[in-house]
Structure formats: structure tokens, C-alpha cells
């Protein structure tokens, strides 16, 4: 290997490591604090490793509040949202690419326009609507507002647009109905896009604090981030050690999930024509 190449690699590796360090620092700090005894958390020195590991923070996280329940709520809400989003977005995207109908361009334009609207803007009308329907403080209130994902429609549309239409015509000749084509041909082919979409969707809704704060007040319906907030409400003041332990527990499933789906995720984004 020539020296030039070696230097170039060393430089680029350094930058990647530096970037990774900046991104990872809060996580490392979270883990570090979650393992520190209370008296070591607020000190003048910066120490990543605690003098002794305070595992009781984790025990406290699960006992002080009902963290298990919050995690379960998170799973119910995220899976519910994802299933409905895919049930709606995949057929919509298929129709937008493979069916010819009047106003198709207009509908796609509306999908694109929908991408530009932050959901905080629609939060109040949706809140009022749910209140009218007496659905506040239910799982429905947490799931229903997100079932139609314009981002999902867009991502799947970009993916389906690249599949040669011969394939769908062959399926029609083979006797598949349009619904069967969507679920037996188009959806399996869009697996990388679906994985990418699932990562986006689950991350967004698992981490969402805004909507659960608005739509629910019942503790039994709290999602993980909503649950972590309860550590601040405790009369004992903010209990930082257990708080960080709970945060680590809440973050872990996402990190593990992403690592498992990493390959399909990047593939789906590349195929969808989106640059990360």
C-alpha cells in the first residue's frame, strides 16, 4: 500500500471516528450515568466509569414507575401504527404507479404536499376531533392519527415505480386480482423499502412524546417517553440515575432493531431514490 493511500485512509478514518464519537457521546453518558451511584452523578470531574456500578438504578427504574407497562404500550402503539400504515400505504402507492386514473398526478401532488405539513400543525384539530368522538385517553387516540402515512406512500411509490410493469401484467394474465398483486407480488418485492419505512415509523412513534402528552393523561396508557417523564414528577425530585437507566432501557430496543435491519434499511433507502 502506498503512503499516500495510507494517509488518505487514516484521515478519513479519523473523521469517521470523530463523527461517531460526537454522535455516541450522549449515549455513552446516558449509560455511564445510569450506572453511577447518586453521589457520583453531579461532580466537578468528568468520569465515564463509576467507582462502583449501581445496578439498583435499573431495578429502581422498573419498580418506581411501571416501566414494563410503558414498554408494552410502546409496542402496542408502534406495531398498531406500523401495521395500519403499511395496510394503507402499499395499496395507495401501487395505485399511484400501476393504475391509470384521472387526477393521478393531482393525488400524487397532494401526497407530496402532505409531506411538507408537520404533524404538530394538525395536532389541535385532530385532538378536538378525537375529543368529539370521545376517543381521548384510548389506544385509538394514540394510533389513529398516524395510520395514513404520506411518507410511506411516497417511499413505496418510488420503489414500485422502478418495478417493470411487465411483472404486474404477467400477474394479471396469471389471474391475480389487483389486491392479490399488491400483497403477493408488489409488497414482497418492496421488502427493503418496507424495512426502511418500518425503522422510520417505529423510531418516530416510539420516541414521540408530543402526541401522547396531548392525547392521553391516563398513566396506564403512557408510552415509554411519556413514562420517563414521570421520574421528574416524583416527590423525591428528579431521580437522575434511575431516569437514565429507564432511558437506556427505552432506547435499547431501537438500537438493537436498527442494527439487525441495517442492511435492508440502507438498501431500501438507496432503492427508494432517497439520499441519507
Amino acid at each position: 500500500m502506498s503512503t499516500r493511500l495510507l494517509v488518505r485512509r487514516a484521515v478519513s478514518t479519523t473523521f469517521v471516528l470523530l463523527g461517531a464519537a460526537i454522535v455516541l457521546l450522549p449515549f455513552v453518558w446516558m449509560l455511564s450515568v445510569s450506572l453511577k451511584p447518586a453521589d457520583e452523578i453531579f461532580t466537578r470531574e468528568i468520569a465515564f466509569l463509576p467507582t462502583r456500578f449501581e445496578w439498583s438504578n435499573y431495578v429502581e427504574a422498573f419498580t418506581a414507575v411501571d416501566l414494563t407497562r410503558y414498554l408494552m404500550n410502546g409496542v402496542v402503539v408502534c406495531v398498531g401504527i406500523l401495521v395500519f400504515q403499511i395496510l394503507l400505504a402499499v395499496p395507495c402507492a401501487y395505485a399511484l404507479t400501476q393504475r391509470r386514473f384521472r387526477a393521478r398526478t393531482l393525488v400524487f401532488g397532494m401526497v407530496l404536499a402532505g409531506l411538507l405539513v408537520p404533524y404538530h400543525v394538525t395536532a389541535i384539530p385532530i385532538f378536538l376531533g378525537l375529543a368529539q368522538l370521545r376517543l381521548l385517553d384510548t389506544y385509538t387516540a394514540l394510533i389513529l392519527p398516524f395510520v395514513a402515512s404520506v411518507f410511506g406512500m411516497f417511499l413505496f411509490r418510488q420503489f414500485f415505480a422502478q418495478i417493470p410493469s411487465d411483472l404486474f401484467e404477467a400477474a394479471r394474465v396469471d389471474g391475480l386480482s389487483e389486491t392479490a398483486i399488491v400483497w403477493r407480488i408488489a409488497f414482497p418485492l418492496a421488502w427493503p423499502a418496507a424495512t426502511a419505512f418500518a425503522v422510520f415509523s417505529v423510531t418516530a412513534h416510539w420516541n414521540d412524546l408530543f402526541w401522547p402528552l396531548i392525547a392521553t393523561s391516563d398513566r396506564a396508557l403512557a408510552t415509554p417517553p411519556r413514562g420517563i417523564v414521570y421520574f421528574n414528577d416524583q416527590e423525591s425530585g428528579s431521580d437522575v440515575g434511575p431516569l437514565m437507566a429507564a432511558a437506556a432501557v427505552v432506547t435499547a430496543p431501537l438500537v438493537i432493531g436498527f442494527l439487525l435491519a441495517q442492511r435492508a434499511f440502507t438498501q431500501g433507502l438507496a432503492a427508494g431514490g432517497l439520499k441519507g
Binding site: 411483472l167 401484467e169 404477467a170 394474465v173 396469471d174 391475480l176 403477493r184
Partner: peptide, 28 residues
């Protein structure tokens, strides 16, 4: 096409990439 019971072979073959050869042939 299915009601007409026509069979078609496409220039691009249009085989379903996610199915095995046996599943491709068995699908119709």
C-alpha cells in the same frame, strides 16, 4: 386476461423475482 384464459410470455420474461421457479410456474 385470466377470464379469457390466455397465456402470455413477455420479452423480459417477467418472472416473479421473490418466488422460486416452482412457485413461479405454480402461481397461475
Amino acid at each position: 386476461p385470466a377470464e379469457r384464459n390466455v397465456a402470455m410470455v413477455f420479452q423480459s420474461y417477467a418472472l416473479y423475482p421473490h418466488l422460486t421457479v416452482a412457485q413461479n410456474i405454480a402461481l397461475p
